[in-house]
């Protein structure tokens, strides 16, 4: 039984690694700021699209961000949904909702809302990039490799650079 201890040890290690990997997949907490907003904030597109929403909705989004940062994700989602009930078609609010769902581990919902922003939201600027990054991350966590690849590829299309002057 103990005639091949190195093999047994290797098998055990393999199982442990697999377990850790699976645990990582199921329990991964997404840091929205680090993985989506900060990279997208560097978007230097010449054209930036900032959807207009009522000032009251801006306040709600700020409130939701604070709740999300404090870890109160259920409350954050409800607060954003309140904003969405005021402006149902707003890509900005939809993107916030996608990010909150992502942080909460509800990847299907994150995918739904980010896809909505990708399809119907701005195709230039920071918000454009945020939606594609969210979609890519949600797709990765749902193991939708094709969608993830497509979303990552499309990030580049969110930037229009100033043409060279001659």
């Amino acid at each position: 039984m103990f005639s091949h201890p190195p093999i047994l040890w290797l098998r055990s290690l393999g199982c442990l690694l697999l377990l850790l990997l699976l645990t990582h997949c199921t329990q991964r907490r997404v840091d929205v700021d680090q993985e989506i907003r900060d990279p997208a904030a560097g978007n230097a597109s010449l054209i930036q699209v900032n959807p207009l929403v009522p000032a009251a909705v801006h306040d709600l989004l700020q409130e939701a961000d604070a709740l999300r940062e404090a870890g109160d994700l259920a409350e954050a989602i409800l607060t954003i949904q309140r904003g969405l009930s005021i402006v149902p078609g707003s890509s900005l609010v939809q993107q916030h909702l996608a990010e909150a769902y992502l942080a909460d581990g509800q990847y299907q919902q994150a995918m739904y809302w980010s896809t909505l922003v990708v399809n119907q939201g701005p195709d230039q600027g920071t918000l454009c990039e945020r939606s594609r990054r969210t979609q890519a991350l949600a797709a990765e966590l749902l193991q939708e490799v094709a969608i993830q690849a497509q979303a990552l590829e499309s990030i580049a299309s969110c930037s229009t650079q100033r043409p060279n002057r001659f």
Partner: peptide, 10 residues
């Protein structure tokens, strides 16, 4: 029912 939201511009 849904609560009535009140804000400027509504």
């Amino acid at each position: 029912a849904r609560p009535l939201e009140l804000y400027q511009g509504q």
